[in-house]
């Protein structure tokens, strides 16, 4: 592989990491609160609002049913509004975030459902406010599950970010398609795939280690 090819690969790797990191952060920042809301408004939960819960659930499901490649194209006006452009790495962050927020929300909801209702009851018996129950009991106890879910999300984002490449998003996926598929350069395509495998492995093992650190079982 030429020096040019190496630097291209490195640049694309940085682009991928940038897309995954920013959309990962955005999806956690918005998806986890949404997951909390989905959880606490369930029937028999601390802030039960069955109607709101059902409405939120429907919206989340709808967002999750749109195939990513269609979502990307469909929200181009929104992407332009937020990122100022619809092409490039930064622009790709908008659909990536939007697709992963409902995903994270469902994962967070699942992790919170695993927290024993006895703990919530104990906190209530101590005079905890609903906010305290969420921040001091539910989220800390669900932390290993949340870390697990975020690991899953980041891995999914790596592969989605490759799809973003298809509409000019940059990153490793873009590189692989342009050189491997369009220019018949198998070396670069294989190199891209190897780098992707390494990235996913690193995310997975970092996630597992972090999860083990907070899991006192």
């Amino acid at each position: 592989m030429s020096a040019d090819a190496w630097s291209l690969l490195f640049e694309s790797l940085l682009e991928t990491l940038y897309m995954v990191a920013v959309s990962g952060l955005v999806s956690a920042a918005l998806g986890i609160p949404l997951g909390v809301l989905l959880h606490v408004t369930r029937p028999r939960q601390i802030l039960q609002r069955p109607l709101l819960n059902r409405a939120l659930g429907t919206v989340v499901n709808a967002a999750r049913s749109v195939p990513f490649i269609i979502l990307m194209v469909a929200i181009i006006p929104l992407t332009r509004l937020i990122a100022g452009t619809s092409i490039g790495t930064t622009a790709a962050i908008v659909p990536l975030s939007l697709a992963s927020i409902p995903f994270v929300a469902r994962i967070a909801e699942g992790a919170l459902n695993e927290v024993s209702s006895g703990l919530v009851e104990a906190a209530e018996s101590m005079g905890a406010t609903p906010l305290q129950i969420v921040t001091r009991v539910m989220l800390p106890e669900a932390l290993p599950g949340l870390i697990h879910g975020m690991t899953l999300t980041l891995v999914t984002l790596v592969s989605y970010s490759a799809m973003a490449g298809a509409i000019g998003g940059g990153g490793l996926g873009d590189l692989g398609i342009r050189y491997g598929y369009q220019r018949f350069d198998p070396i670069i395509m294989i190199a891209t795939v190897i780098v992707l495998i390494v990235v996913v492995q690193l995310i997975q093992s970092a996630g597992e280690r972090l999860q083990a650190r907070y899991e006192h079982k």
Partner: peptide, 29 residues
Amino acid sequence: RREIGMIFQHFNLLSGRTVFQNIALPLEL
């Protein structure tokens, strides 16, 4: 409720907190 302590059949301790931190919870709240 702060004047009414309660204990449970299945203890209901927070698994992510140490003994000290568990006992501290009502005071933190």
